[in-house]
Nucleic acid binder design. Structure first.
Lengths: 151, 151
DNA sequence: CCTAATTAGATGTATACACATCTTTTCTGG
DNA sequence: CCAGAAAAGATGTGTATACATCTAATTAGG
């Protein structure tokens, strides 16, 4: 019975952050041939699913500060993947994919799917699904609490 | 039945990264009065538990590239919290806390514990424990795979 | 209507993170 | 022993992240 490389840490946040690093390394590696990061892929995927969210709305969906998105979107904009439309409220920028963005997303999906399926098989369906549910329940509860805090 | 602020994303990595951001924001907020981040607290906690790991060993424990630790340890070193000892192998740096580091850790524990207990109560013991086990099992499995890949 | 408060996003700054590459030290074959 | 390979960290670079603060646009009170 050898001690694991990654012992359980006393801090749940540290355990989750560690998992995020481990997963990110795997997915980034899979996407590297495309010069795409999982952060950028996630935004492409979110925009291909969502309607035309504002930057703030996308930030809420991803539990990410909207000013963080300013920087990442700028990188993606340099590649011509993102379109920003000014809505009725001219403070807002509504986001959507350009043709090039949709195309890049399509190109990336097989690389992403391969990483996702490899890890899913390795963990097993039950663990994978349980993990997905628990991690998202936790995120939802933290987000709700935040909404209450703001009042 | 309203749609959640944080819908389940198709990508498990994205779900975990989102959770990491949400948790990090809570713990960082709790530690802010001390000018300490959860990253730094985690290193203090790891060093207070571990023996005297090398930088590489600490990186493995945290699933973090050892060169990332170079920068974070430099910040902590400026505060005088970290001691680096050259071991028999002079390439290595064995890490431990200074008195000031131990003292800072002790000061921080109540703030950390408060955040941890608040969230634990909110999620409930069952979910909290299940999440901890699942997330760490997943991390372990990814780390093992990495070891195999390297061969 | 106007002014004051609020909101959306941009910008300045600092930490967090990893990969490529470099230097120093150690190990391995011969 | 010595030359080449391997290992441990440091450094250069680029992305990821959030908070404080700023600007522009909208909303709320009077």
């Amino acid at each position: 019975m050898k001690s694991p490389l990654t012992p359980t840490l006393p801090c749940t946040c540290a355990n989750i952050r560690r998992a995020a690093r481990a997963f990110t390394q795997r997915y980034d590696e899979a996407l590297r041939p495309l010069g795409l990061t999982i952060t950028q892929f996630t935004i492409l995927q979110a925009l291909s699913l969502a309607g035309e969210p504002t930057q703030g709305e996308l930030g809420e969906i991803l539990a990410m500060d909207s000013t963080t998105l300013t920087r990442t979107l700028a990188i993606m904009d340099r590649h011509g993947w993102i379109a920003k439309k000014y809505g009725a409220d001219r403070r807002e920028r509504r986001l959507c994919l350009t043709r090039a963005g949709e195309s890049e997303f399509s190109r990336a999906v097989p690389y992403w799917r391969s990483a996702q399926e490899t890890l899913r098989k390795r963990l097993g369906k039950q663990r994978w699904d349980d993990l997905t549910k628990l991690i998202n329940d936790a995120t939802s509860m933290l987000a709700e609490q935040e909404v209450l805090d703001a009042k």
